[in-house]
Design a binder for these strands. Structure first.
Lengths: 118, 118
DNA sequence: TATTTAACTATAAACTTGATAGTTTAAATA
DNA sequence: TATTTAAACTATCAAGTTTATAGTTAAATA
């Protein structure tokens, strides 16, 4: 009861009982939403395909975010023992659900950014 | 054409043409989504009501995010010449649209965090 | 032996966020 | 009269995150 209200954004409305310590803290990091969208839109992506699509991300940040999202069970990493090595990232079931949940946001963002740049 | 593809997450799918330089960069900062949700869920909130609802945010970060969201035309700031001073934050029309776009995400987040903490 | 390529790792600088104390204003209180 | 009170911040420095850039690893090939 009281434990819950501490981490509530609102008591009247149950839209959000989330704390920054949870998954929202990961999604609020720079690049997370774009990484999830990119992988989702392309079904599978390799590390350097992501690097290109996400124009300007640093390799450290990309590697850190991928690990974090993998640990959170949002994305899956598959590596193939080839030379040069090949690693493919895709969304898990949970990641695909999350992607659906962020699509309205991404649409809103692209329509707004579109308006400005057109 | 080429200008667009540089900042595209995907060319096949128009769900996201957004770059981290735009509004997504602001929304990807820590606390932004929770601030927008909190204000939206409560219609209007004062600075220190936000501070309490957003348990653990620092005053600097809250002040910075509020200014940034105000500049981006997501929230509106109204101050009243009283002692002690009163300032109320609410969503603009654009902010309200954004909030609608974020609701599926917030619901997904709270159902997932809920599972973990129950 | 040197080269090639994907997928990172290492490191130091730049930028963002956090913790804590302090500022401002004027009415209410001691 | 001096002190207290309260909201909405600002100032400052420490801590954490992101960037830029160079380097590592592996094995087939020139």
């Amino acid at each position: 009861m009281q434990k819950e209200s501490k981490r509530c954004i609102s008591r009247e409305d149950d839209v959000c009982l989330c704390s920054i310590e949870g998954i929202i803290g990961i999604l609020s990091k720079k690049w997370s939403l774009l990484i999830i969208s990119a992988i989702g839109n392309n079904h599978k992506l390799r590390y350097n395909e992501l690097e290109k699509k996400l124009d300007k991300i640093s390799p450290k940040t990309l590697a850190d975010r991928l690990k974090e999202l993998e640990n959170a069970n949002i994305i899956k990493r598959e590596s193939f023992a080839e030379i040069p090595p090949r690693v493919e990232y895709s969304l898990t079931k949970e990641g695909a659900d999350l992607r659906k949940a962020i699509m309205p946001l991404m649409r809103w963002v692209s329509s707004r950014d579109g308006k400005l740049s057109s």
